[in-house]
């Protein structure tokens, strides 16, 4: 492990100092994330980029498990809409999940995540689609009546102007009232990525 260099394509790393300056990561963190990025990006095709297939493989260790939510997260990582994630995309998107990232950033990302149709609103049919995806994934059966009750109650609380869709302002207020909704937006591992990926030390270009 880690000793095979002959066929590994070296990927030019976006300036770690620049990435560290615009994120909650240190330069060492960025270098450690580069090790993670390289591992993921070469898991299927060694092209220095993460495809959707490689993304799913890294999360689930399973190429087949394509899912509404992973697909959606991949699309949000892929900010340049190239169908692949480069290292800069990867670090900037993971920054949203950093425990120190501002709540506003997490709220914005979660809004985009749930606004499946990119209309600028989280609409009722999108919420229903996501609930059905969750129930299918978890193999839970709920009656249609129960699902409707949950959605009705949610929109009563989250959509005070009762226009049937949640705008960014309403979402922000709803999240402030229900901060546990941001739990999925924080990855505790990111507080100490250099411990998770110590091999970066051997490749580090900085002394700190």
């Amino acid at each position: 492990m880690g000793c095979f260099h002959s066929k590994v394509r070296e990927i030019p790393m976006e300036d770690p100092f620049a990435l560290a300056s615009e994120t909650a990561f240190s330069v060492s963190d960025v270098e450690a994330l580069y090790e993670l990025f390289k591992n993921i990006s070469r898991s299927v095709t060694d092209d220095g980029l993460i495809s959707k297939e490689e993304f799913q493989l890294a999360i689930f260790n399973n190429k087949k498990k394509e899912n509404l939510f992973t697909s959606r997260i991949f699309d949000l990582f892929d900010v340049k809409k190239k169908g692949v994630i480069d290292f800069g995309d990867f670090v900037r998107a993971l920054n949203v999940f950093h425990p120190s990232a501002p709540m506003e950033v997490k709220i914005e990302f979660s809004f985009k995540l749930y606004d499946l149709d990119n209309t600028g609103f989280i609409e009722r049919h999108e919420v229903k689609q996501m609930i059905n995806a969750l129930l299918c994934e978890a193999e839970i059966k709920l009656s249609e009546e129960t699902i409707e009750t949950i959605i009705n109650k949610t929109f009563m609380d989250a959509d005070p102007n009762q226009d049937g869709k949640i705008d960014k302002y309403e979402w922000k207020n709803f999240v402030y009232e229900n901060p546990s909704l941001l739990k999925v937006m924080t990855l505790p591992y990111l507080r100490d990525v250099t411990t998770a990926f110590p091999s970066f030390v051997f490749h580090s270009k900085v002394e700190d």
Binding site: I59, L94, F97, A158
Partner: peptide, 29 residues
């Protein structure tokens, strides 16, 4: 009986239970 209606989980709490929203897999190898 406190008289309050039983709490209903909100839709986003339910959605948040999806393992597919959890990126920990990147770090758990």
């Amino acid at each position: 009986n406190s008289g309050s209606s039983p709490a209903i989980i909100n839709a986003f709490q339910l959605i948040g239970m999806s393992s597919c929203l959890d990126l920990s897999g990147f770090f758990e190898k």
